[in-house]
Design a protein around this nucleic acid. Structure first.
Lengths: 235, 235
DNA sequence: CGATGGATTGAACACTCTCAATACTGGTGG
DNA sequence: CCACCAGTATTGAGAGTGTTCAATCCATCG
């Protein structure tokens, strides 16, 4: 997942400044800045579809603000949400002629769309970019595998704990601080392979156990991250 | 697995100075032939570990024969099997300093191991290879997402149907022909997020419904692929 | 305000799990 | 060749977790 984030944010304790700057590798996002002139800013309202499964993959998107859900709809109405994409996250970078998934705005969303052609040109022009892209894809695959474990092995309580912890990690929110739940309970349920009622009940249980405080529907405070991690035993 | 992706973006990049005729795109496997001189053939017995989570990623493997399970073990003994790798499949190509997963021999297995360094050199030397690698990674990600849907939305009957169909597709086995189940029931259970008993019972149900014939434990005949596909409703 | 959509809670039910007993299989040794 | 053994698969019965259906609550917004 995004352990690089927490590492990057780590402040130096003591006076020891790193003497020689090692060549900090540029992130994929850094490279994408080169695409700035081709990028178009777009805005979507709550619930709007950004693109649908089967649409041609003409654009690569970067989320600027808001939350996007990446999902798939079955013919009978069942829905699975693969992940939630948040500011800084990239969407649609898969090597795939048609979009294999649907992207919908969970909240009001702003994003930048880069034409696939210019994205490809950037990748073609620089080995470094391709390497970064490979790393990015690898990281995505690891994240998804992590989630497979959640769905394959964990019960409701563990799933909710895993979900909240990952969200806290991504948003760099520690214990005692409010964590924004931009998505609704139904979204969480469809991401965890549960029903909305089970998600509600499970959150209620964790609240009764004093592991959580729930000031309001869209905010949660993690009181005991250690206990939550113990629940979400992974690896 | 890698179905329509081969037909994906066929933009040829400048480096390899392709002749007039657009050449048939080489698969990643084709390119790997260049690594032949560095490859070492290895053999593993049933149940042996090929590498474990946390081991340094020093090799990339290609399965020659047999079946390998890619899995993760939790501290409390729970196990999740991400996938089964079969002849022709590549293992360990993720951009990752340490193996994020464990690979174990389900049957007697032979495989070729390529030093990671030579693999990386190959990738560094050719844009085409990197492109193929990106495609391969993308395809893997799509496969995993497909499976996330299975775990997130499907019940036991649907899961088993999905599993059997995918296996039949991979092995190019049609209706009425014997499909080899090289893995045991417990392996299937750990891959589908079920228990071994549920897998057994579900297979029994499908057998009673005449969708399957089960000559013996390690072989299954799909009698009605249409009905199975209807069960495994996806997309 | 009342209306609407989401969230929460309750009760009954169903699916899957757990525990336990039995059957099968391939391999070993008498 | 058969008996035995260990590992695996199958089947059964009961329990439990999560689902379903339904009612109520709550917040936002016109």
């Amino acid at each position: 997942m995004s352990m690089s984030l927490s590492a990057a944010r780590k402040e130096t304790f003591g006076e020891t400044c790193s003497p020689v700057m090692p060549p900090v590798p540029l992130t994929l996002n850094d490279h994408l800045r080169a695409l700035q002139p081709y990028g178009a800013r777009q805005r979507f309202n709550r619930g709007e579809t950004i693109f649908s499964e089967g649409d041609p993959s003409n654009y690569v998107y970067k989320v600027l603000s808001g939350t996007v859900r990446i999902c798939r709809h079955a013919a009978d109405g069942r829905r699975y949400i693969f992940d939630f994409m948040m500011p800084g996250d990239l969407i649609g970078f898969l090597e795939c002629p048609d979009q294999p998934i649907t992207a919908e705005a969970v909240t009001e969303v702003t994003l930048i769309s880069y034409p696939r052609s210019s994205f490809d040109r950037l990748a073609a022009s620089s080995a470094e970019v391709r390497t970064r892209l490979l790393c990015h894809l690898s990281a995505s695959l690891l994240t998804v595998q992590q989630h497979l474990f959640v769905l394959g092995c964990q019960n409701a309580k563990e799933r909710v704990a895993s979900f909240l912890l990952r969200l806290a990690d991504r948003n760099d929110v520690g214990a005692g601080h409010g964590l924004d739940l931009t998505m609704g309970r139904q979204d969480i349920a469809d991401h965890l392979g549960l029903t909305i009622e089970t998600v509600c009940r499970t959150i209620a249980v964790l609240r009764n156990d004093r592991l959580l405080t729930v000031p309001n529907t869209h905010q949660i405070i993690l009181n005991d991250i250690g206990a939550l991690r113990a629940l979400a035993i992974e690896v």
